[in-house]
């Protein structure tokens, strides 16, 4: 029993250090990969607590490798937008100039009701007063409601690319009509 107690203390210290090294995030703000890694670390950490037969190194080494990989991936994501887009995805505009873009909702597999629910969380009853409604890579909805904001005024490269894509799609639809 004393073994389990000491292991518990060690695992607590190791996991706390691992999460601290990876950086502070609330669960709701985590990217998908960060959430998955948190689950994997927690599952791996409990194995030597459940089974005293199992060596502690069998959990320690995977935890260290996962933290190292996560740090390297986050460093690469900082340097490379493309890599970040592959790992985390990119923001998707679902509302533009007060209108819902249905094709984008279908891409995200979000229903109208889900979108209205997200709008209500932002104290908005509908999409009409929204210039841009953006589903972020972590699944939250961001609202830009500044009137007459142009694409050039937006600093985010991801969002600029997304708006340019939508503009191109709209131009193509205009041409076919």
């Amino acid at each position: 029993m004393l073994t389990i107690i000491i292991r518990t203390i060690l695992i607590y210290i190791i996991v706390t250090a691992a999460i601290r090294i990876m950086g502070k995030r609330q669960v709701s703000d985590m990217q998908t990969s960060e959430l998955v890694i948190t689950f994997i670390i927690s599952q791996t950490a409990t194995l030597p607590l459940e089974d005293a037969d199992r060596p502690l190194l069998n959990s320690l080494i995977p935890i260290m490798m996962i933290v190292a990989i996560e740090l390297i991936v986050s460093l690469i994501m900082m340097k490379s937008r493309r890599f970040r887009s592959i790992i985390c995805g990119h923001p998707i505009v679902v509302i533009k100039d007060g209108k819902i873009i249905e094709s984008q909702l279908k891409k995200l597999r979000i229903s109208y009701e889900d979108l209205y629910s997200l709008l209500r969380e932002k104290d908005l009853s509908d999409e009409k007063s929204v210039q841009y409604g953006i589903i972020e890579p972590n699944g939250t909805l961001s609202i830009l409601s500044s009137k007459d904001m142009t694409t050039d005024e937006i600093s985010s490269e991801d969002l600029k690319d997304e708006l340019n894509d939508i503009k191109q799609d709209e131009n193509q639809e205009g041409e076919t009509e």
Binding site: I21, M64, M65, V67, A68, L71, I72, L75
Partner: peptide
């Protein structure tokens, strides 16, 4: 700094 931490973790593993 985090890059070095990653390297140390890999080295320890």
């Amino acid at each position: 700094k985090r890059g070095w931490i990653a390297v140390i973790m890999i080295a320890l593993s």
